[in-house]
Design a protein around this nucleic acid. Structure first.
Lengths: 242, 242
DNA sequence: TCATAGCAGAATGGATCCAATTTGACGTCT
DNA sequence: AGACGTCAAATTGGATCCATTCTGCTATGA
């Protein structure tokens, strides 16, 4: 923990993503500070940042609340991600890839090929493919040489992805997940091909559609959010309907 | 000043946009706090926010520095704005406009028509058109019903727009500005027509190209030989090449 | 019995205090 | 003369303290 401030921020992010802080739950500075063993100052900073990221919403004079993300919001964010990564792919195609960028993308594709070669996939492989996927997308963003895309995306990075990534892997239907990720991987191949050939419009179209692959489609939207407002603290059993 | 914290933030933003804090200049918490007559706490919060907005960059253990925005960065941000507003226009076309949205957009167009009807334009008119323009764009973003677009855009709101909007009006060539804004206004008409007819793809294409109208094109990039963008203000004679 | 006023508790926002770390300079040694 | 080590100044980061304000309950009066 070389940077305690950043540590508080990422810890809270993780607590939200993991569901330790449930959607709709109220969070206050003092209990959170005590819980994490730090002072109120870094917590205050972190709350502001998390509000910016869309993970918290401010209740005037009553602290913050973990935002509930609706299905529409997620699909809207996915669409935003689609056009931005589409733009990135187009600009990457127009700029041309450097040798190391091409190399990095090819490695991602090859490692993915190896993963899917067996015809089945384990839970562990999914984790590995996930990091592979992240790397591929990051490389395309870099290749666009447009930092504004990253900025615009960083807002959505946690809102849809923290929710979707935690949710989107259905470990009870690994065969179904296999097909979904295999399809996404094929889109990666197509996107790389288009970028490497300098086909900007095609690369854009592929990446734009590809964003939808981060969803499990209708399957995703079946969770009922709890509308009750609770304050986190030591007495969480005291959350009776009051 | 009901919200001093917000006040500090917007004051600093204004100081950067107006050039009172020059690009590349270092800013520290204590002098800034004394200058604004507040404590270090709100300044610290504001610096974090300004860093997020891309107006400041952090120097490790040495405070912050006002970022210099390159021409490439601005054109990249404009392109991001283009695809996002294009997406908004398409979704607005797909969703259909509500009666009041249609009414609001038509009012913007009519007021713009009145402004341009005389065939010439004064500096005052430019200010008015500017607010008109803002309203039009905001209405389209609202009509998209996709808050993620606004989120993604808010990051870019200050970086390119604070610079470009202040920059982009060349008060010495109002006739040229007239033609430029007239063209932009025609694009507004076209965009509204496409949205109102439910032509999503056409609306998207128009708004996407329209983003470039926020630039003075090549003219913009010929003023700063060092690639840095300067803000025109009251003391524009002090812009010696240094 | 219901409504209103007042009071206590709680929570944020800002100010100040303390600690840790880095920068830059100065002096000395090789 | 140059380089290295040490020291002081400055600056951020975290912790604590005080003021303000909002909420919710309670008590009293109609």
């Amino acid at each position: 923990m070389t940077k305690p401030g950043q540590h508080v921020l990422s810890t809270l992010r993780q607590m939200i993503a993991s569901g330790e802080l449930q959607a709709g739950e109220r969070v206050a500075e003092i209990p959170t500070a005590e819980r994490l063993g730090v002072s109120r100052t870094p917590v205050r900073i972190a709350f502001r940042a998390l509000e910016q990221e869309g993970l918290l919403e401010k209740l005037e004079r009553r602290g913050y609340r973990v935002r509930e993300v609706s299905a529409e919001e997620i699909s809207g964010a996915v669409e935003v991600r689609g056009v931005l990564e589409g733009l990135a792919a187009r600009q990457a195609a127009e700029n041309g890839l450097s040798d190391e960028q091409r190399q990095g993308l090819r490695e991602c594709l090859a490692q993915g090929d190896a993963l899917f070669a067996t015809g089945s996939i384990t839970e562990l492989d999914l984790e590995e493919y996930h990091s592979l996927n992240q790397r591929f997308h990051t490389l395309i963003l870099e290749a666009s040489k447009n930092p504004a895309i990253v900025s615009a995306l960083s807002r959505n990075e946690h809102l849809p992805f923290a929710s979707v990534n935690a949710l989107a892997i259905d470990r009870n239907h690994l065969d179904q997940e296999y097909r979904r990720f295999n399809f996404a991987h094929m889109q990666h191949h197509a996107a790389f091909d288009a970028i490497d050939c300098g086909q900007g419009a095609r690369a854009e179209a592929i990446m734009r559609e590809h964003a939808n692959a981060t969803l499990r489609y209708a399957d995703l939207f079946s969770q009922a959010p709890d509308n009750s407002i609770r304050v986190i603290g030591q007495d969480s059993e005291n959350k009776t309907g009051k």
